[in-house]
Write a protein that binds this DNA or RNA. Structure first.
Length: 259
DNA sequence: ATGGCAATCCGAGATTGA
């Protein structure tokens, strides 16, 4: 039996957080780490820093916004950027096969407000993802979808549900997509295990959100049945959020025991 | 109720995030 840990972390600028990410890979037992909001064009991506650390990396990015990457200890194959059937200039999805696992790293759309054009884009993007996942699941028994979903699936994933009711990140439309992903045969690995109440993965920088634990659980690791049966642990690692100059998100980790 | 923080960019205040 060997332990294999998958992680996801919205770093809110890899330029700023590169030392923290390298440190995390050096000090933690994470085998695959999915990053979101790298905010770097591909020519500016610090690929060599990861290679020098003995790591494998794939990435797709753009200026200022979005951008995703997958870092791994083992080699990656069949790297796919974006979704083949969804034209999108925003760089929000990257997939790679690592140790026989299809890893899909997603930075899902924020949506801003239910009345906004961005919310329409969010609905379209999620529709495309659902369709894309169906295709990927046909080809890959072992599939993990990790990332910043920008969806808090249940009221217990929200620090103050009454204040957020019906709004962006918690609307029935968005939660419907989360349930649709589960209906494809994926499992929310965090909810496989007993967890503390008020467990969150993101806290607002403002008003001491982290200290007040005024947060949301919007970063998730969904596993196909072939993986969830071997999942022995899923945790939110709050340590990086306590660092100097932290991202507003903190890593979520899922560990598999592979025979 | 509003804005509050952080990161980005043709470089000061606007935009975005969640």
């Amino acid at each position: 039996m060997t332990a294999f840990t998958l992680g996801t972390w919205n770093v809110n600028s890899l330029k700023v957080r590169l030392p923290q990410v390298l440190d995390y890979m050096a000090n933690q037992t994470v085998d695959v780490l999915c990053l979101q909001e790298t905010k770097l064009t591909d020519d500016a991506f610090p690929e060599q820093a990861f290679i020098d650390a003995g790591l494998h990396v794939s990435f797709t990015g753009q200026k200022t916004y979005n951008g995703v990457a997958i870092i791994s200890r083992s080699p990656q194959s069949d790297v796919l950027k974006n979704m083949p059937h969804f034209e999108d200039e925003q760089q929000r999805l990257i997939s790679a096969t690592i140790n026989g696992i299809r890893v899909i790293c997603a930075y899902m759309v924020n949506g801003q407000d239910l009345d906004s054009d961005k919310f329409i884009y969010k609905m379209n993007w999620l529709t495309a993802l659902e369709s894309h996942l169906k295709t990927e699941l046909l080809q890959h028994d072992k599939l993990a979808l990790l990332g910043d979903f920008n969806i808090a699936p249940e009221d217990c994933d929200v620090h103050d549900p009454a204040k957020w009711i019906g709004g962006n990140l918690v609307s029935p439309q968005e939660r419907g997509f989360f349930q649709a992903f589960l209906a494809l045969g994926l499992t929310d690995s965090f909810r496989l295990f007993e967890q503390a109440d008020q467990s969150f993965s993101w806290w607002d920088y403002r008003q001491m959100g982290f200290r007040r634990n005024a947060g949301l659980r919007i970063d998730h690791i969904l596993l196909s049945n072939a993986l969830s049966k071997d999942c022995v642990r899923c945790v939110i690692d709050k340590e990086p959020r306590r660092h100097e100059q932290p991202s507003d998100h903190t890593p979520v980790l899922a560990t598999l025991e592979i025979k």
